[in-house]
Amino acid sequence: MADPKFRTLIHKLLERSKGGKVQWEATAVEGVYQAAFPQYSVKIYSRPNPNVVATDYILEVADNEGQVIDEIRDTDFPDEYENMRDLFNCARSVGLGLDRALDSILAALGRDDPPSAEPPEPPGITDEDVPF
């Protein structure tokens, strides 16, 4: 049975990740993202579940030599499925730089242009303007 502390770990990682406090990064394996801490690191990835039409999410904890100490799957805490999915999506977004890219694009799009001056009314046509 998975250590119940993992549940707290999922919650804390998700909360801090949403707040931009966890530096997720992409790894040499596509779809695997890691975040490092002073003594340990965590990795998260997804994989299709062959038995059901769903995706499994796996969170691994590794020591300071990169050796995996333990892992949990969403099936260990079925009620945490959505949190693990959100954590994976958050890690992916940060790891690929998507959040930075979107922030930058949105900031650029959100910049208000100075209000354009009303175009001057065209001068009224008078008899003096008629060349004949």
Binding site: Q23, E25, T27, A28, V29, V32, Q34, A35, A36, F37, P38, Q39, Y40, S41, K43, A62, N64, E65, G66, Q67
Partner: peptide, 21 residues
Amino acid sequence: PDDQKALLVGSINQFRVMENA
């Protein structure tokens, strides 16, 4: 500092993942 240790730990892990890949 913790951020420097985390960088080292993260790098070690990256090269472990690379090795496995």
